[in-house]
Design a protein around this nucleic acid. Structure first.
Lengths: 143, 143
DNA sequence: GGTAACAGTTATCCATGGTAACTATTTTTT
DNA sequence: AAAAAATAGTTACCATGGATAACTGTTACC
């Protein structure tokens, strides 16, 4: 499938730019949205939970959470393990989630305009398979 | 198609990391590769040509080309319009192109492992349609 | 020949993410 | 139970990639 990477990657910048525009209304970006999305769908979570989910390092999540705390979108709740910082959505956070969720879903629909349902489904299913193949080949532990 | 963006975006970082690893052998990154690829396939080109192709600003391409000149992968050739900087692959550049082209194509094949040809084709065709929909909605000029 | 448009560069800034080194806890080992 | 190892999080610093604004030359237009 020669040229696949090019096609995949040339969509990235327009898409992420669009998403960030969309969320700038709430002083958010897609990277912050990921955190909101995660704790909304998985309940109160630690920074390590989130870092694992998105395959990024801990300091990256530390920063995202700090910004969300500044925006009063998340707050820390007491946990048993005092090493952990368990965070949760605030009420403001819930509202922001609902508003963004709607806008993102709308965009997801618009973006699929004129594309047959079957094609959408197949693309939807194929992307994670590709990701699996890439991450399988990572072979970090095999040294 | 709820959750599409998440699926699309979660593939980005593993993929670009993999590509950059692959090209670090040649002191390259994917962003530099794009320039090499463009002038290989379109012949001697100006910085504006390249910037237009990838929807990035001119200073971004200035930097990429400077680094490729340092690496002796591209060189400037004389043109009629003395404002323009027409660049072309050097002999070293040609060799690097061939080597990278091969490695990237190999990776493109590996990444599609276990995915039916039909699914590959549909995904391949769907991505640019989505991109079209996003960029259509940009409406920059319509103010 | 003067003005506008264009190609490219420089300087500066922003967003995102990585690594290394550290603190504070908890778990494991002995 | 004390020592060592592992874990969660933070801080400081750096790299990449891209944007904008302001600038220099050069060419096109009238």
């Amino acid at each position: 499938m020669q040229g696949f990477f090019q096609r995949y990657l040339s969509l990235y910048r327009p898409l992420i730019t669009r998403l960030n525009e969309l969320m700038s209304t709430y002083e958010l970006s897609y990277s912050l949205w990921q955190v909101i999305f995660y704790i909304k769908n998985n309940g109160p979570s630690t920074l390590v939970d989130i870092a694992n989910q998105y395959n990024v390092e801990k300091p990256t999540i530390t920063r995202r959470v700090q910004r969300l705390e500044d925006l009063q979108i998340v707050k820390q709740i007491p946990g048993i393990d005092r090493r952990e910082k368990v965070i949760q959505l605030t009420e403001i956070g819930e509202e922001v989630y609902q508003a963004c969720r709607k806008e993102i879903t709308d965009l997801e629909n618009r973006v699929m305009d004129g594309i047959a349902n079957e094609e959408q489904m197949i693309t939807f299913q194929t992307l994670p398979k590709i990701q699996g193949n890439i991450m399988k080949g990572d072979g970090r532990k095999s040294e």
